[in-house]
C-alpha cells in the first residue's frame, strides 16, 4: 500500500538551474569568465516548506510536517574562450520530513553541464547590453527513485535546456536582466510497471512534462565592483502533467507551476584575489503541485587562471 495515507506532495527539485542562487558564472546570469579562467564554487542550500499545493488547493500535511531539503552543490565554470564558457555541477541532496513515518533520502542528484556563449556584447552609451545563450543537459547521477514524493532527490530524467539571458548594465553598475528557458525532458523510470495519473499506464516509464522557466533580476554593483546586490523574481511552468488528486501522493509528472521572489548578494574579498562569497534567498509566492518553499543559500567561489 504505497504511501497509504501519507499524502501528498510535491517536489522542489527543479534541477540544478533553478536551485542556483543568482551569482556569478551560472547558467542564468550574464557573467562570463575570460579565457583560461576557472571558477570553483560550493553552495549550500537549505530549503523548507510546510505547506504545499495539492493541485490548486493549498494545504499542510501532518504526515509530512515540515519538509527539509538540503543541497550541497559543487560547481565549476571555465572560460574556454572569452565568449564561450562551460559550466558543470553535481549537487548532493538530502531530504527529510519532520512528521510521518517515511524515511528521507540522500545522495547525488543530477549532473548538469552547460555551454554558455556571448551572442551580443554591445556598448550603449556608458552602459552595456549583453545577450547570452546557454545550452544545457542534466541527468540523474545516482539511482535515486523519482517516484518518492516529496522526498525524491530529483525527477530522474534527462533534461535538455536552451536559455537566453538579456542584460543591460549602466556605467554606474546598475543592471537589469531577464532570462527565459525551455526545458525538454525525457522519460523518467520508476520501479513499478503500472501507475495511474488521469488514466492507467502499463509501463515503468513516465513521460515527463517539458517546462519553461523565466526570471527577472535588478541589482547594482557597489564598493568598487566588489559587492553585488540584487532582487529577483522567477518562475517555472510545466507544459503538461497532471494535478495531484485529493490526498494522493505527488508524482514526477505532476503539473508544477510556481512563482518566487528572492534576492542575492555576492562579495569579492579585496585582500584575497579571486575569492568570493555568495548568499541568496527565495520564497515561493504562488504554486501548483509544489511546496511553498523558503530556500536560503550560502557559498564560496574561487576564481583563478589556469592558462
Amino acid at each position: 500500500m504505497k504511501r497509504m495515507s501519507i499524502t501528498s506532495i510535491l517536489l522542489m527539485a527543479f534541477g540544478v538551474m533553478l536551485l542556483l542562487p543568482s551569482k556569478a558564472q551560472t547558467p542564468t546570469d550574464a557573467l562570463m569568465m575570460e579565457t583560461g579562467q576557472i571558477c570553483l564554487a560550493a553552495i549550500y542550500t537549505h530549503d523548507t516548506w510546510d505547506e504545499y499545493w495539492e493541485g490548486t488547493l493549498k494545504r499542510n500535511n501532518g504526515n509530512i510536517g515540515t519538509l527539509t531539503r538540503q543541497t550541497v552543490m559543487p560547481m565549476v565554470a571555465l572560460g574556454v574562450i572569452d565568449r564561450v564558457n562551460v559550466i558543470a555541477a553535481l549537487p548532493w541532496v538530502k531530504t527529510q520530513a519532520s512528521g510521518g513515518q517515511m524515511t528521507g533520502v540522500q545522495g547525488l542528484q543530477d549532473w548538469g553541464f552547460w555551454i554558455k556563449g556571448t551572442a551580443v556584447d554591445q556598448e550603449i552609451g556608458s552602459g552595456k547590453l549583453t545577450l547570452h545563450a546557454v545550452a544545457g543537459v542534466s541527468g540523474p547521477a545516482s539511482n535515486y527513485l523519482p517516484d518518492y514524493a516529496p522526498f525524491n532527490l530529483g525527477f530522474g530524467c534527462l533534461e535538455g535546456s536552451l536559455r537566453g539571458v538579456l542584460q543591460y548594465q549602466t556605467g554606474s553598475g546598475i543592471f537589469v536582466r531577464g532570462q527565459g528557458a525551455f526545458h525538454l525532458r525525457g522519460n523518467s523510470t520508476i520501479e513499478r510497471d503500472y501507475y495511474y495519473t488521469t488514466q492507467g499506464f502499463y509501463t515503468d516509464e513516465v513521460d515527463m512534462p517539458d517546462a519553461i522557466s523565466y526570471g527577472a533580476v535588478a541589482g547594482i554593483w557597489l564598493l568598487n565592483n566588489s559587492l553585488k546586490v540584487e532582487a529577483m523574481f522567477d518562475g517555472l511552468k510545466s507544459l503538461g502533467g497532471f494535478d495531484i488528486r485529493r490526498q494522493d501522493a505527488g508524482f514526477p509528472s505532476n503539473k508544477m507551476i510556481f512563482t518566487r521572489v528572492g534576492g542575492g548578494l555576492q562579495y569579492y574579498f579585496p585582500f584575497v584575489k579571486g575569492l568570493g562569497v555568495v548568499a541568496s534567498g527565495g520564497y515561493v509566492l504562488t504554486g501548483r503541485n509544489v511546496g511553498q518553499s523558503l530556500a536560503l543559500s550560502g557559498g564560496i567561489t574561487y576564481q583563478f587562471g589556469i592558462w
Partner: peptide, 24 residues
Amino acid sequence: LYLSIFASALALFIFQSCEKDLPQ
C-alpha cells in the same frame, strides 16, 4: 556560436522525437 546553438536545438529535437507513446 550560432552553429552550436543550432546543433543543441537539433539535439533537443531529436531527443524529443525519441520519446514514444507510453502504453495505456
